[in-house]
Design a protein around this nucleic acid. Structure first.
Lengths: 340, 340
DNA sequence: CTGAAAGCGCTAACAC
DNA sequence: GTGTTAGCGCTTTCAG
C-alpha cells in the first residue's frame, strides 16, 4: 500500500503538502507538479478509511429499502441518488429484506460512522419500536408505521389516495369493488390498513357496505401473489367488476390473473393500483394508479436528511411530512363510452 | 461520541478488554457483563472507520450498475446481495448512470479502500479502456466489451442467445423479423452488436438477407424507447411479422407500441426479448425471452470476487466466464395452432 | 484472562 | 507556501 508518506518522500516535501495538493489547496505550481508526478508513478490513492476517521464524516448516506428489485423501491432509490449526488453525497443502498431486525441493524450500523445519515424505508418496524429509533443520528424514516416517532418522518397520503382510487372506480359505475391487500389487525398501523381505510371510506360514502369476502390477502407484494390473489377472489364465486390493488406490482399480477380467467380489463373488471411505477404506463391495458408524489418524496427525504447532517447538534424536533397523492387514470379503468 | 476508552473507564477495564468483549473473544463472564452494561448505558457503538483503518478491510463489496431502476440490473443486484451476504459480505450499490467516467471513478474509488472488492457492470467502457482497468485490486467485470482485459470477466452468451431467439421466431414461420437495437459501428464491440450478430447468423442460416430497414435503433434502453422504436418501424411502412428486442424492457415498450397501432401479439407480430426479467412472466401476452443464466451469473460473480479478496496477492491470471443462455417461450411467440 | 504500547493513514491547528 | 505535531478510535503484538 502506498501512503502519503511515500509520496512525500518521493517528491521531497512533507505529507501536509501532499495533502494540500490532493485537497486542492494553495500549493505552488512547481511543487504541485512534483507531487502529482510522484502520485502518478507510485500509483497512490487516498485511503478513505483514514480520511473518514480523521474528519468524522464520510460523505455517504445510506439508503435502506426492503427490496432493491421491487420496481417501486428501485425507482425511489434512483430518484434519491439523483438528488443526493446533486448535493454532493454518495448513496449506498442496503436491502433490509422486509425484516424488522435488518431494519434495526441498518439504523444501528449507520451510527457506526459508516454513513453521515440514513434514509430508512420501513415496513417491518411498528409503533412499538419507536423507542429503538431514538437515535442521536441524522435519519429520515420513509413509511407509514411510525407516526409520532422520534425521527423525521415522511409518509404518503395513503388514506386519501386510496379513497380517491376507490371513488374513481365508483365514478365509473362499478359497485362490486374488491381489494387485494393484507390488512393488518390493528387499524391504521401500516400501509395496507391505511389504504383499506380509504377504500372503506369511499364505499361507505357511496352507501355500499364493505364485503369481507371481496378483500383478499396476497401472500406477499409481488406479481405472482397478485395473480394468485385474483384467482382466489374468482374462486370465491363472487361477481366483481373492479379491483383496487395495494400496489402496482400486485395490480400487474392481478391483470395477468384476470386474463388467465378470460376476463377483460377494463370491460369486465376494472383494475387500479397504487405507486405509479414506470411499468404502469406500459402494461396492456395501461394501468390506472395513484401517484404518491415520487419526486416530492425523494427530494424532501434528501433535503430533510442533509439539513440534519449539516446542522449537527442543533437538532430541532422531529418533523412529519405527508406527500400528496393523486389518481392517474389510464386504460385499465376507462369506461366503455370513452373508447372508440 | 462515545469511544472504547469511555467504556473501559466506566467499567474499570482496559480498552483491550472492551475490544475483546465486542469481538466475542474470551473474557470472563463477570467482566463481560460489566462491559456490556457500560456499553448499554453509555450507548457505545463501534466506529467502523477506525476499525477499517486498522484492519485494512471493510467487509463490504461495491456493486456498480448503470441504473438501479432498470429491472434487469435491480434483479441482478438483488441476487448478488443474496449471495454476498451468505458469504458474510455487505453490498453497497452504486449507480454509474451509463457513463464511462462514472464507471472509471467507481473503480478508482474502490481502490481507496472503501470496499474490499468491486463488481462492475460495464456499458460505457470499451476495449480501448482496458489499460485503465489494470488495477491491482479485486474486481470482477460484468459485461461484453472488455474481452481479454486485465480483470476477471463474466459475460453472457449473447451471440448464441440471440441466434436461438431468432431461430425460435423462424421456427414459428416468421420471415419478416425486425430487430430493435442500436448496433455499434464496430462489430462485436458491445451487447447490441453481439446480439445483432446472432440475429444475422440465424437469418442467413435460413437463407434470409438482413434488411437494414428492419433494424431500428431505440434512443435508449427503456420502455418508452421501445414503444417509439416500434412506431418508427411501422412508419417505415414495412410488413413485419416478428420483432426481436435487445432487452425485455424494450420488448415491453414494443408490445405497447404494437397495441397502440392495433396490431395483435403474437397473431400479427410476434415479440421476443432478452434478459428474462420477472415482468416478462406477467405482461399480457406474457413475453418470450432469453434467460441469460441469472443465478449462474450472480453466484459466479460473487464467488470469483471473494476468491480474489481472500487470496490477496496470490492473484493468478484473469479469468473469463460465459454464462449460458436459453430461450424461454411464452405467449408472445406462441403459434396459432397451440392456442385454444 | 487482561493490559500497555504502538500505529493504521490522514488532516486540523498551528508554527515558520 | 510549507512543515511539525498531535491524534481521530480501533486492533495487533507482546507481556504479564
Amino acid at each position: 500500500m502506498v501512503t502519503m508518506q511515500d509520496v512525500a518522500r518521493a517528491s521531497g516535501v512533507s505529507v501536509m503538502t501532499v495533502s494540500n495538493v490532493i485537497n486542492g489547496r494553495n500549493v505552488s505550481p512547481e511543487t504541485r507538479g512534483r507531487v502529482l508526478e510522484a502520485i502518478d508513478t507510485l500509483g497512490y490513492r487516498v485511503n478513505l478509511a483514514a480520511r473518514n476517521l480523521r474528519k468524522g464524516r464520510t460523505g455517504t448516506i445510506g439508503l435502506a429499502v426492503p427490496e432493491v428489485d421491487s420496481p417501486y423501491f428501485a425507482q425511489l432509490a434512483a430518484r434519491i441518488i439523483t438528488h443526493a449526488e446533486a448535493a454532493g453525497f454518495r448513496v449506498a443502498i442496503e436491502q433490509t429484506g422486509l425484516s424488522r431486525e435488518k431494519e434495526l441493524t441498518t439504523l444501528a450500523q449507520s451510527r457506526n460512522y459508516q454513513y453521515d445519515g440514513v434514509i430508512l424505508s420501513v415496513v417491518g418496524l411498528g409503533k412499538e419500536d419507536a423507542a429503538l429509533l431514538q437515535v442521536d443520528f441524522p435519519a429520515v424514516i420513509l413509511g407509514e408505521r411510525i407516526f409520532d416517532g422520534p425521527l423525521d418522518h415522511l409518509a404518503m397520503a395513503n388514506v386519501e389516495g386510496a379513497r380517491a382510487a376507490t371513488e374513481h372506480l365508483l365514478g365509473a359505475g362499478r359497485r362490486r369493488i374488491a381489494m387485494i391487500a393484507e390488512v393488518e389487525a390493528e387499524p391504521d398501523s401500516g400501509v395496507a390498513s391505511l389504504r383499506f381505510h380509504g377504500y372503506r371510506d369511499a364505499l361507505l360514502g357511496a352507501g355500499i357496505a364493505v364485503d369481507p369476502d371481496l378483500v383478499v390477502a396476497p401472500r406477499n407484494v409481488t406479481m405472482p401473489a397478485g395473480r394468485d390473489a385474483v384467482r382466489e377472489l374468482l374462486d370465491r364465486g363472487h361477481d366483481i367488476d373492479a379491483v383496487f390493488c395495494l400496489t402496482d406490482t400486485l395490480a400487474i399480477g392481478a391483470m395477468r390473473g384476470l386474463a388467465d380467467a378470460g376476463l377483460r380489463v377494463p370491460d369486465d373488471v376494472m383494475v387500479i393500483g397504487f405507486d405509479d411505477i414506470i411499468e404502469a404506463r406500459f402494461t396492456i391495458p395501461s394501468l390506472s394508479t395513484v401517484d404518491p408524489g415520487h419526486d416530492f418524496m425523494a427530494r424532501t427525504a434528501v433535503e430533510m436528511l442533509i439539513e440534519r447532517i449539516e446542522r449537527k447538534g442543533t437538532a430541532g424536533p422531529p418533523r412529519e411530512v405527508i406527500s400528496p397523492a393523486r389518481v392517474v387514470a389510464r386504460e385499465s379503468t376507462r369506461p366503455a363510452a370513452d373508447r372508440a
